[in-house]
Design a protein around this nucleic acid. Structure first.
Lengths: 240, 240
DNA sequence: TTTCAAACATGATATAAATCATGTTTTGGC
DNA sequence: GCCAAAACATGATTTATATCATGTTTGAAA
């Protein structure tokens, strides 16, 4: 049986992730304008999307999989700024600030990502003040989250940060309904350490402690949050 | 001799800080629209501008002095996100994300700050796509800086961060020309510690080390950067 | 000018977390 | 199914930095 060619360019209007996306709310015509010029590509785990220091030529829109956005310091240590999931834009910050990428992006789980050329996107953006307003709102919301994370990094212990990040990952990447306590990303201990901002060994140790204390359990490469309230107490989010 | 009433509301068009401001580039009419509804107030050192958790009702625009924007964690520890100087907007992030303030703002050096009601500002913003674009660009640029700071907090030592922050302060708040090495803010050791994300005692100790090593000197409450290159080496920004 | 609080300073101590070392388990490629 | 490499795990050691304690200086207010 001959393989049918994989049709990647499904129209944005029909994209299952449209409702989670900033593109949601655009008119049929606007979506079409983007649609005609986009290119959708499948990426394998470990593949790079863009590197820090290069210039953005467009915008990436996640259609499937998971991508980590991270910075490397001089000593090669990595800090993961965020993990993009379907519906998320990727690299739009640098595109809008008209600067080089301040971070790199690499695929964590096999992904399908659509690329929208800069000009096409900017055209739609500038012709639609409401769209622009939504983008601004999203960017400013992101900044609030980053402020929170900075204060956390500055004054919280690794244990607290790990607990807080596990809860955050559960909220953001937890599955639907029944299985909402299962963190649906196959993160290596090293990646988790680079999210928390600590050494891999430290994360391994703390995770086994949390497991011993019955706060979490491991399911294959995934982590299940058994006791969110106790974890929140570890994170020092609630007292008592 | 009777005191003449202090006229605070100088027109934005004549403001000496307009060229440093995001308002720069607006038309005479747009500036007037903002101008008519703005209120300029003098604040004393230590006075609070807004608190985390409250709702913004407008935008603050710095006309003089210095203001720290910071977050307090549960234990009361403070992290200073940035220090606003004349020409800077204050609180525009929360205004644009339509959320509560994610941080508090307190005067570090006697300040004059103009308040622009939300509606007036949004009106001008939404009617001028170019202005909107400049605001977006500025916000996205800020995000890049925050990403950098997060990576720094995650993986750099306190010594490195202090050195890096001294250099940053010199760049941003250094005086003009000859005296550009003098950091023109009267920062307490505690404030500096809350910028770096460490304990006050640690900052005091490291500062005296830097002083002993001839990298900096103290001039009253101010710090002079004597050896920026050596400091950059301490910050691990350059090697060798 | 005195006084009192805040800021600055320095030493001693405790400790969280990085680093180094080594061993085991899992995984993906052939 | 085998092998090498990566990921995971755990122990020992070091180190940076927070915390605690105490003393001194500075500065603002009375």
């Amino acid at each position: 049986m001959a393989k049918a060619p994989v049709k990647l360019n499904i129209g944005c209007a029909l994209c299952e992730h449209l409702s989670d996306s900033l593109l949601n709310g655009l008119s049929k015509e606007e979506l079409d304008a983007i649609n005609v010029h986009k290119t959708c590509i499948k990426y394998k785990k470990g593949q790079n999307i863009f590197y820090e220091g290069t210039r953005p030529t467009g915008l990436y829109c996640m259609n499937g999989g998971k991508v980590k956005v991270y910075k490397n310091n001089v000593q090669g240590k990595e800090y993961i700024i965020y993990i993009a999931k379907p519906g998320d834009f990727l690299g739009y910050r640098s595109l809008l600030s008209e600067e080089q990428y301040a971070a790199s992006a690499t695929v964590l789980e096999d992904a399908k990502i659509c690329f929208i050329p800069k000009d096409r996107f900017m055209e739609v953006l500038q012709k639609n003040p409401l769209f622009m307003k939504r983008v601004v709102k999203a960017v400013c919301h992101e900044m609030g989250i980053m402020e929170e994370k900075m204060a956390e990094l500055a004054h919280k212990s690794v244990r607290e940060r790990l607990a807080a990040n596990l809860l955050m990952l559960k909220e953001t990447y937890g599955m639907e309904g029944e299985e909402s306590q299962l963190i649906d990303i196959a993160l290596s201990r090293e990646d988790l350490a680079n999210i928390v901002g600590t050494a891999t060994e430290t994360v391994i140790r703390l995770l086994s402690e949390f497991k011993t204390d019955g706060l979490i359990s491991f399911e294959g490469k995934r982590i299940r949050v058994l006791e969110p309230r106790k974890l929140a107490r570890q994170a020092d989010l609630i007292t008592g």
